[in-house]
Design a protein around this nucleic acid. Structure first.
Lengths: 212, 212
DNA sequence: AATGCCACCTACTTCCGGTAACCTACCGGG
DNA sequence: CCCGGTAGGTTACCGGAAGTAGGTGGCATT
């Protein structure tokens, strides 16, 4: 048995909870991406999974529960993608000098912003789910987490005499600005992602230097 | 008969299309604001209007059709509110000097941004409807129109050698940044709207001065 | 008085989220 | 080797909401 069990490993239709759960989340992401939250039907998901509805409800409680589970996976991949990029920026800086930890906030924002836009470009349908349920608690959590990442970055460099709430507002504004650019990007697929990331960061950085 | 006919003017339950339409849009806005799009029921709206469902479907075609009609009204009020503020900023400038038209883009952005946040604060439930249906064409149209307003502002002052698409991106980023601040504001009702508008504009202006 | 139209209603179909109750292959203990 | 508990699953249903087919009735025009 491989370290990650798959559906095909269980021939008799009877499958461990954890495995069934992951299968349903995967199929759920596909279905939600195809049809959107409202038009995706639990009956169809059940049919695709070769299972009946009560199984899904046993595992996720409700349609929204399943949706949140799907978003959770998306959020993890996004956060990881951005964190990787930011870490990469630090290492690039570290290679120049000798110090292992020489975090350059501007380089991080550049790299993180680009990673975000890349992710949005490559995972458009999945990412749009976030906006479909702006009211879904899961979607709100994901967006808050994203803003918190930026806030963290800014806290490291901000002088103590800055109103912490002003930092929070700025972090939210930056996060939303990138989201807006992502939406514009979807309407203009011919545009270069690097170019967009550059324009965005050049727009935001001057105002952010106040905090350094 | 007054220039704007009202329901009460028609005692026999039979009311002209246009009047019924306006009544349903008004009641629809209330209902959607109370319950959200998904949980608002057409039967209940019909009950509140003292009418049966087929009447609504005759006039709006579908639940989404009604929703779009409601958003349209909201969008008009919002755009008007911002336009008023921007015009006010121009006039304040004009009072100083003698010239009738002395549009100061920075003052306009300040005034427009504040007006937007005020509107969002005072019409929270109604405004949130915009985000509930990101899939709805009407919502997309409203947000595009908003960004177009800002773009217009920026075009007036930008030098010719700026890539027009960069302007578009910037306008979208600014618009979205304000939206993000509005959301943050709803989570922090104790905050001063003027303070928030100030922080936001100070964050954005330095990056925007590139375009002057 | 007959005609036609406009606003409106009754009564229905369809679909979907959610649930109660039951089933059965398997596994470990006596 | 039997036997009961459990994990994984099914059947068959409910309530509610979107959307519709077809009919009714009054008012204006002729």
């Amino acid at each position: 048995m491989p370290s990650v069990a798959r559906i095909e490993d269980f021939r008799h239709g009877r499958v461990p909870r954890a495995v069934r759960e992951r299968q349903l989340v995967e199929l759920g992401e596909e279905l939600f991406a195809e049809r959107g939250f409202a038009k995706a039907s639990m009956d169809e998901l059940a049919r695709r999974a070769g299972v009946t509805k009560p199984v899904i409800y046993e595992l996720f409680g409700s349609k929204e529960g399943l949706f949140e589970a799907c978003l959770e996976g998306l959020a993890l991949r996004l956060a990881e993608s951005i964190a990787d990029a930011a870490r990469g920026a630090d290492e690039a800086v570290a290679r120049d000098g000798e110090a292992a930890a020489a975090p350059d906030p501007e380089a991080r924002l550049r790299a993180g912003g680009l990673a975000f836009l890349r992710f949005a470009a490559e995972n458009r349908v999945a990412y749009e789910l976030l906006y479909e349920g702006r009211f879904s608690d899961a979607a709100v959590r994901v967006r808050r987490r994203q803003a918190a990442l930026i806030l963290e970055l800014m806290r490291e460099i901000a002088p103590d005499d800055v109103d912490p709430r002003e930092l929070e507002v700025a972090a939210n504004a930056v996060n939303s600005a990138y989201e807006g650019v992502a939406h514009w990007m979807w309407d203009h697929p011919e545009m270069d992602v690097e170019q967009l990331a550059d324009w965005t960061v050049e727009l935001l950085l001057p105002g952010l230097r106040r905090f350094t």
